[in-house]
Each structure stands twice: as C-alpha cells, then as structure tokens.
C-alpha cells in the first residue's frame, strides 16, 4: 500500500514535469497565451468604458479574464489532451502502468495549474495596472478559499470530460470546442452573472467558475456584493458540493469508460 502511494506520487510529479518543461522550452506559447487574453480582456474594458458602465466593471472584467485562462486550460490541456494521448499511444502506456489513472490526471492538473497561474497572474497584473483597478478585499481567507475551490471544481469537471476521450476521439473534441464560448457567456466572465436572470444563472452555476467568479467579485470589490448573485457563504457551500460531486463522478466515469473501452476494444487504437 505504502509503495503504491509512493509510485503514484512519483507518477504525478513525472506527468506534471512534462507540462512545466514543455512550457519553458516553447517560450512563444507564453507570449500567445498571455498577450492574447490580455488583449481580449482589454477589448471588453474599452467596451464598458465606452458604454459608461460603472467603474467596478473594469475590475470584474479583469478578474473574469484571469479566470478564463483556467477554463481554457481545463478544456484543452486536461480534457482534450486525452485525444492526443490516445492518438500517440501514451494512453495505452498509462493504462498498463501500475498506477491510478487519477495520478495521471492529477499530474496534468498540477502541472497545468502551475503554468496557468503564471499566465493568469500576468493577465491580472497587466490588467489591473493598465486600467488602475482598485480592489478592496473584504475577507482575504474567504477569497483564497473561493479561488482554490473554484480551481478544484474546474479540474474535477476537466477530469469528468477527459473520461469521454477514452472512448470518443474527434466527437468529444468537437464537443469541447462547442463548450468553450457558451461557457464564457454563461459563467459571466465579463459581466455579473446576475444579469442573465436567476434561472439561467442557477443553471450556469453547475460550472464551478460561475459561482467562483461571482463570489470573488463580491469579496474583492467594494460594490461587488450589490451585483452579486447569491450570498457568498452560500456560494462557498455550493462550491464545496460541486467539487466533491465532480471528483467522485469523474472517478466513476473513468472506471465506467475504461471498462466499456476494454470490453468493446476501443480503449487503445488499432494500428497493427
């Protein structure tokens, strides 16, 4: 049991290492992945300025842009990553290794968080400085808790999506492509989610980002609570539930898909 745990930890580190090394060796990624989001975030800021929206909207947008980096990362580098892992045959090798599949996912996730955080931080810093956003943090511990819960929830969701790739390749890929933009809208990246109306906002809350962003805005800006969706404490509880739900579901989904894949002969690609 103890050696099993050690092996799994080593696997997590090894998989995370690939992520970090890859990013450092291709500095151009850093540029496109940071500069472009900063620009698109800036575009929203100017729209709001032109519309003479309340001052704090600038801050909302920058926070949204920051968190959007994590969403893109979860979709493409966690879930859709398995499309490539399968194509290249790495999936087979992970599957025959004496480790939990969760370790590979966790390795991808932790490597990803490390990278995305530098990216998100750059977006945040650039945005806040350029547009002189003023923060007034109501409770730092709560803000941190919300941030972490949002990430865990998002990665749980990414793991859940990734299980689809065990059986479906291109189809799942298209699904992910379809998801990217609507989620940007629904989870209120660039405006308070309350504006969508209660029903839609409630539905959108299934995506941890929605509640996470809303809570963060309420906690980080003086007037944030006014445009908030529901009470922050409620949002925290809901986030905890979502995290547990997604993590447990993803474990079941992986077990199910793996079994089905092994039964139908679709787990590994046929190439010889």
């Amino acid at each position: 049991m103890k050696t099993d745990l050690k092996t799994n930890i080593k696997a997590v580190i090894a998989r995370a290492y690939v992520r970090v090394v890859a990013a450092n060796r291709e500095p151009s990624w850093w540029l496109t992945e940071t500069l472009l989001p900063v620009l698109s975030t800036a575009a929203y800021v100017y729209v709001y300025k032109a519309l003479k929206a309340p001052e704090e909207y600038t801050g909302f947008v920058i926070l949204g842009g920051t968190m959007s980096a994590y969403w893109v990362m979860v979709l493409w580098s966690m879930a859709a990553q398995f499309y490539w892992e399968k194509e290249m045959g790495n999936l087979d090798l992970y599957m025959i290794a004496p480790i939990s599949r969760m370790s590979i996912l966790l390795g991808m996730a932790s490597g990803g968080v490390l990278l995305t955080t530098t990216r998100a931080f750059a977006i945040f810093l650039a945005g806040s400085l350029i547009f002189k956003v003023s923060f007034s943090i109501i409770s730092f511990p709560k803000l941190l808790a919300v941030f972490i819960l949002t990430l865990v929830g998002l990665y749980g969701l990414g793991m859940l999506f990734s299980s689809l790739f065990l059986l479906y390749g291109r189809e799942a890929w298209h699904g992910v492509t379809l998801l990217q933009e609507p989620v940007h809208l629904l989870s209120g990246f660039f405006f308070p989610v309350r504006s969508l109306g209660f029903g839609v906002a409630l539905g959108a809350s299934l995506i941890p980002l929605t509640l996470g962003l809303d809570a963060m805005r309420q906690l980080a800006f003086k007037t944030g609570a006014k445009s908030g969706f529901i009470n922050v404490n409620l949002e925290i509880i809901a986030l905890v539930i979502l995290c547990i739900l997604f993590l447990v579901l993803s474990k079941y989904a992986w077990d199910f898909m793996e079994r089905l894949g092994k039964k139908e002969g679709r787990l590994s690609l046929r190439w010889q």
Binding site: T3, K6, T7, N8, K10, A11, I13, A14, R15, Y17, V18, V21, A22, R25, E26, M88, G89, N90, D92, L93, Y94, A97, P98, I99, W271, Q272
Partner: peptide, 26 residues
Amino acid sequence: TGGEHCGYGILNVRETLWMFSQLYGI
C-alpha cells in the same frame, strides 16, 4: 509495440525514459 509513438516530442530521450520509469515508482 513496433512503431509506437510514445512520449512527448518536447522531452529528450533521457527525460522520456525517466518519465516512464516514474510510473513504476523507480
């Protein structure tokens, strides 16, 4: 498997072997 394309193009040979060895807790 003959002709398999395991690993990640961005890692070098040594790193690739190290990565796979870690899946076995070595």
